[in-house]
């Protein structure tokens, strides 16, 4: 199926819905609409940031510090505990979530850009591949945060750890490694939504470059495989 034969989302708003229910339409449209970058990017960055801000405003902060101190392999200095406040944690958390989200899509965009340059005669610039990375990351980011938020609000207590919010992580579902233990961080970061992002990226590659779906999925999965493999080796090693 060529790009011209694929139906496209007719507007940005419909694209934001189509990415969930009919991603081919959204991704095809994103290929041609260079202005469809900022809003999904804002969503990818802001939704987790807002969630982090809300979490630190409502969590039992003393309990949170206890958990953090317990998970720390080193003795937590008294001065550090005094320095940490909900505002400090919220600020650093929001900045951290925003930067990590941005770095993720920037690097994925770079990967797609260089992949296209190396393996095809594709003439798309980096901005286009960055847009694909953003669109591919957006659904998982938003659904993941909304699910975590729902989990937090339904928990019935404000003593819920950040890692426990992501009930859909591999750690919450299968491995159950305690916070601070080797491998906990990578298992908490690894979620089914990672596959969703990979799948959308693969679908984008397939639609944008005409590669087969299977090859596109493999190429899209390479960064995630490398990142999580290295992280696992470091974390468990």
């Amino acid at each position: 199926m060529s790009q011209s034969e694929t139906l496209q989302s007719t507007s940005l708003m419909s694209g934001l819905i189509d990415i969930y229910v009919d991603p081919k339409k959204a991704l095809s449209a994103a290929d041609e609409q260079s202005g469809w970058t900022m809003l999904p990017l804002a969503l990818v960055l802001m939704v987790p940031a807002v969630m982090v801000a809300y979490y630190f405003q409502t969590v039992d902060f003393n309990w949170f510090i206890d958990q953090m101190a317990a998970a720390s392999p080193e003795e937590f200095p008294e001065e550090a505990i005094e320095f940490l406040s909900p505002t400090v944690m919220m600020t650093t958390g929001v900045i951290g979530a925003t930067i990590s989200g941005l770095v993720g899509v920037v690097l994925n965009g770079l990967y797609l850009h260089f992949l296209a340059k190396i393996t095809t005669t594709d003439s798309r610039k980096y901005g286009a591949w960055f847009r694909l990375a953003v669109w591919a990351a957006m659904p998982a980011a938003i659904i993941g945060v909304l699910a975590a938020l729902l989990n937090y609000m339904l928990a019935g207590t404000n003593q819920v750890g950040l890692d426990d919010l992501a009930f859909y992580s591999v750690n919450s579902l299968f491995t159950h490694i305690p916070m601070g233990q080797p491998g906990a961080s990578v298992m908490n970061a690894l979620t089914p939504f990672t596959l969703w992002t990979v799948a959308l990226t693969g679908m984008g590659l397939h639609l944008w470059t005409g590669r087969t779906m299977g090859k596109s999925l493999i190429l899209a999965a390479i960064p995630a495989i490398i990142v999580y493999s290295v992280w696992s080796v470091v974390s468990f090693g």
């Binding site: 969930y20 229910v21 009919d22 989990n151 426990d164 009930f167 919450s172 299968f174 159950h176």
Partner: peptide, 28 residues
């Protein structure tokens, strides 16, 4: 119909994961 099916699958998947996480983390 297809869209509804995808949305239901998405919600169903989340509920399933929440259930698994709850019951498994409930493993004492």
């Amino acid at each position: 119909m297809k869209k509804i099916l995808i949305i239901v699958s998405l919600v169903g998947g989340l509920v399933l994961m929440a259930f698994v996480a709850k019951t498994d983390s409930g493993s004492a």
